[in-house]
Design a protein around this nucleic acid. Structure first.
Length: 424
RNA sequence: GGAGGCGUAGCCUAAUUGGCUAAGGCGUCGGUCUUGAAAACCGAUGGGGUGAACGCCCCGUGUGGGUUCGAGUCCCACCGCCUCCGCCA
């Protein structure tokens, strides 16, 4: 959620931001109009309440001194004011509701360092690591490698759950598990994250605070009976961990890592990445989240990205880092780096991690704040990033480590976790 | 699912039968004092409106309603926590 006080000060900046993101800037004027009405009404209500409080005091005094007639006159007067207040409060409530509805659908404001552009063609490649893998044979795509080894079963998954699901067997199942443990160990032991095991079902508010709702309800799986949502990423529980709390400045930054499955309906992505296990309704991910102070959040974002990159470096898989343009960024982000891994089947780089600074966009919604040494209370900045998407990492290993005979080598760093060096 | 209890500020704890400003303690920050520190003392320590500013005013006792001139206090619903019972991997 954007900051209404900032909006009052500089509406033009917000309009530019919305335009750059491809949103309708009309929303800003609507908000301002409602805000003006709201402030007028609020002042009116305030002074009425002041008058009522005064009368209440007089009633108490009159009763104490047994001036019953005066008291009942005052009570009569108070009653009238009370009724008026109630009526105005109803109007005020309606205005607030209307404003909140719009406010919740306004995306975050891009940071000044973000390239302006309407789509991904304006993204900027920041760096590359390694070279695209070369083969002296015709490399296969993972949707062939897996089934050829009888370890990836898309057909039976379809029977069980429909399209965009997979089954993994034997060494491939174990590879998935090994990757999760490898990533969690790396981030907890070497990068200083605290491991969290999170609920996979969360309340509607939780989804709203992290920015998934109300705008993206179509994207989420919902259990109708209890109105709980399957998490699309562990980011959702992690960034809401301290909702409503006031943290101590000394506690920051807080760094959390969580493994969880992610559930996404992928509505509107028909025809996109239909083959294999690149875009599934369910996939595993190890997620990194930082709670940090505003003055250092952009520096911390760079650190977070480097932590995610380290996974690929250890696995020796070529990748590049891309700075997303205003038109390609997610709803909650002020700035986002994608890490893209080399996939021979795409003959291109493919997103495997997305690392964002959401500044106070999420923490304003969830009321997650911290107290500075001088007593001032402020919203924390929240960063999130995949470290990494496990399914796509598995795909990257299959495709980049495939051998001419159809087998797949296991990256050296992973062997302690798999217990084998080659598949099958 | 059933019965009961609880929810007060960053934390801990009070508040006659509804009535003046939610008392007090701890912590934190600032100040006085000091060579420096501690102690002591003074002040600040949730949100909002208005104003150039000193300030003025409103809201805030888990959340949302209700009763009342007036609610921490009374009523209803919900959420969360605890105890007991039932069910359960």
């Amino acid at each position: 959620m954007i900051d209404i006080k900032m909006l009052r000060k500089d509406p033009e900046a917000f309009k530019v931001a919305l335009r750059n993101r491809g949103y309708d800037e009309k929303m800003i004027d609507e908000i301002l109009k409602i805000d003006e009405e709201w402030r007028k009404l609020t002042s009116e209500i305030n002074s009425l309440r002041a008058k009522r409080n005064e009368i209440s005091k007089k009633v108490a005094a009159a009763k104490r001194e047994k001036r019953d007639e005066e008291a009942s006159k005052l009570i009569e007067e108070g009653k009238k004011i009370g009724d008026l207040i109630k009526k105005l409060e109803e109007d005020q409530r309606k205005l607030e509701e209307k404003q909140r509805e719009i406010l919740l659908r306004i995306p975050n404001i891009p940071h000044e360092s973000v390239p302006v552009g309407e789509d991904e063609t304006y993204n900027v490649e920041v760096r590359r690591w390694g070279e695209p893998t070369k083969f002296d044979f015709e490399p296969k795509a993972h949707w062939d490698i897996g089934p050829d080894l009888n370890l990836l079963d898309i057909e039976r998954a379809g029977k069980l759950s429909g399209s965009r699901f997979v089954l993994l067997y034997d060494k491939l199942a174990k590879l998935e598990r090994a990757l999760i443990n490898f990533m969690l160990d790396l981030h907890t032991k070497e990068h200083g994250y605290k491991e969290v095991w999170v609920p996979h079902l969360v309340k509607r508010e939780t989804m709203t605070w992290s920015g998934q709702l109300p705008k993206f309800e179509e994207e989420a799986y919902n259990t109708k009976k209890d109105d709980l949502f399957l998490i699309p990423t562990a980011e959702v529980p992690l960034v809401n961990l301290h909702a409503g709390e006031i943290l101590s400045e000394d506690d920051l930054p807080l760094k959390y890592v969580a493994y969880s499955p992610c559930y996404r309906r992928e509505a509107g992505s028909y025809g996109k990445d239909v083959r294999g296990m690149i875009r599934n309704h369910q996939f595993d991910k190890v997620e990194l989240v930082w709670y940090t102070k505003p003055e250092r959040s952009y520096e911390d974002l760079e650190t977070l990205v480097s932590h995610a990159e380290e996974v690929l470096k250890r696995l020796k898989i070529p990748y590049r880092v891309v700075l997303l343009s205003t038109g390609d960024m997610g709803f909650t982000a002020s700035k986002t780096y994608d890490i893209e891994v080399w996939l021979p089947s795409y003959n291109n780089y493919k997103e495997i991690s997305s690392c964002s600074n959401t500044e106070a966009f999420q923490s304003r919604r969830s009321k997650t704040r911290f107290r500075r040494k001088d007593g001032k209370v402020e919203n924390v900045h929240l960063l999130n990033g995949s470290g990494l998407a496990v399914g796509r990492t598995l795909v990257a290993i299959l495709e980049n480590y495939q051998q001419p005979d159809g087998s797949v080598k296991i990256p050296e760093a992973l062997v302690p976790y798999t217990g084998f060096e080659v598949i099958p």
